[in-house]
Amino acid sequence: MIEKIIVNIGLESDIVTARQQGKKLAKHLDFSSSELTTIATAISELARNIVDYAGGGEIILKLIQQNGKQGIAIVARDNGPGIKDLELAMQDGYSTGKGLGLGLPGTKRLMDDFEIFSEIGKGTTIIVKKWRKQNAC
């Protein structure tokens, strides 16, 4: 049941499209309603980063499986200027744009897994994952 959706991000209105698509896809796994909101919020932040800092890129949404766990992966990819200081960008309150400077660290808090790759002049790729919670003890 591996499904994949690609949303091109160029305009601010694409942010809404991306999070709606993401929520729809995530509904295939029975995430709780609050987890669905969490996922949609994270997508919104990632898409916003692309619009604000790179001018354009794409969000790839897919359902994933690993060690019997199911989840959703969100890949945010752009060919923008890249991030100079990753450590700084991951700090709360740091922003060079118009948000609250919570975008990246906040997104990390929202999701289970967070990976970021960035190269100056080439672009940034962020991969986040949310796993469906097992009934663990």
């Binding site: 309603s33 609050s34 669905l36 909101t37 969490t38 949609a40 919020t41 932040e45 709360d92 609250l100 919570l102 660290p105 906040g106 997104t107 808090r109 929202l110």
Partner: peptide, 14 residues
């Protein structure tokens, strides 16, 4: 503000 939205907001740091 919906309960789920409130929860996501505080996790995000808002």
């Amino acid at each position: 503000i919906q309960p789920d939205v409130a929860f996501s907001m505080v996790q995000l740091g808002l």
